[in-house]
C-alpha cells in the first residue's frame, strides 16, 4: 500500500494542504484521544454494572418484555450512516471541496443524530409505559445509567455540530475551526463504537442472559 503523505498525528488528519492547521491540532488531538479513552473507561464501568445487574430484575419487567429490537436495528443503521456522513464532511474539508459540501454533510449528520435520539426516547417512553422505569429494579437502574448516557453524548454531538456550523459561517475555515471538525469526527465515530458495545452487551446480552 502507498504511504499516505503527512500524518503528523495519528488517526484522522487534515493532510498536507492544511499543514498549519494540522500542526496546530497535533497536541489537542492527542489530548482529545486521551479524553475519549477516559470516557471509554467511564462507559466500561457502566457496562460492568449492567453485566452484574442483568439478573437483578426484582420481579419487574425484563429484557424480553421491554426491548424493541426493530427500533434498535433502525437506530443502529441511522447511527452507522451518520458515522459515514461525518467522515465525508471531514474529507470535504481535507480536500478543500466547496464549503456547501461540508455544510451539507454536517446537516445530514445532524438530521440522522436527531432521528436517532427521537427513536431512542420513544423506546424509553414505551419501556416506561410497560413499567420499565429506573427505580423498578437494579437491572433497570443499570440500563438507564448506561443507554441514556450514550444518548446524552449523541445530543452533545448534535449541539456541537450546530455550534461548528455557526462557526464555519462566522469565522470561515480557520485552522482552529478545522481542527475542531477533526475532533468532532473523532467523537462521532467513537459514539458509534460505543453503540456497537451497547447493542452487543445491553440488548443481545440482555436477551440471552436476562
Amino acid at each position: 500500500m502507498k504511504r499516505a503523505p503527512t500524518h503528523s498525528y495519528p488517526g484522522l488528519n487534515l493532510g498536507r494542504r492544511h499543514a498549519s492547521a494540522d500542526k496546530a491540532s497535533e497536541v489537542v488531538t492527542f489530548g482529545f484521544w486521551v479524553f475519549l479513552m477516559s470516557d471509554l473507561v467511564y462507559f466500561g464501568l457502566m457496562f460492568a454494572i449492567y453485566i452484574t445487574m442483568i439478573d437483578a430484575q426484582a420481579g419487574g419487567p425484563g429484557p424480553h418484555d421491554l426491548f424493541n429490537m426493530t427500533s434498535i436495528f433502525a437506530q443502529t443503521l441511522i447511527l452507522l450512516t451518520s458515522s459515514l456522513t461525518v467522515g465525508l464532511a471531514m474529507l470535504a474539508l481535507k480536500y478543500n471541496l466547496p464549503r456547501w459540501r461540508i455544510v451539507f454533510w454536517f446537516s445530514v449528520t445532524l438530521v440522522l443524530g436527531i432521528c436517532f435520539l427521537v427513536l431512542e426516547i420513544r423506546d424509553f417512553m414505551d419501556m416506561a409505559e410497560k413499567g420499565g422505569i429506573p427505580q423498578r429494579s437494579g437491572f433497570l437502574s443499570a440500563f438507564y445509567g448506561l443507554v441514556p448516557l450514550h444518548g446524552v453524548h449523541v445530543a452533545a454531538g448534535c449541539l456541537w455540530l450546530v455550534v461548528l456550523g455557526i462557526q464555519l459561517r462566522v469565522f470561515g475555515l480557520t485552522d482552529l475551526v478545522m481542527s475542531r471538525v477533526v475532533r468532532l469526527a473523532l467523537f462521532w465515530h467513537f459514539l458509534d463504537l460505543i453503540w456497537i458495545g451497547i447493542i452487543t452487551i445491553v440488548y443481545f446480552g440482555g436477551l440471552t442472559y436476562g
Partner: peptide
C-alpha cells in the same frame, strides 16, 4: 472494522501512539 476504516487506526508508525493509548 470501524477503528481501521473510520478512525484510521492501524499498525502504521504514525498511528502507533494512538494504538498504544487505545
Amino acid at each position: 472494522v470501524q477503528l481501521v476504516y473510520f478512525l484510521h487506526i492501524d499498525r502504521r508508525r504514525s498511528s502507533r501512539e494512538d494504538l498504544d493509548l487505545i
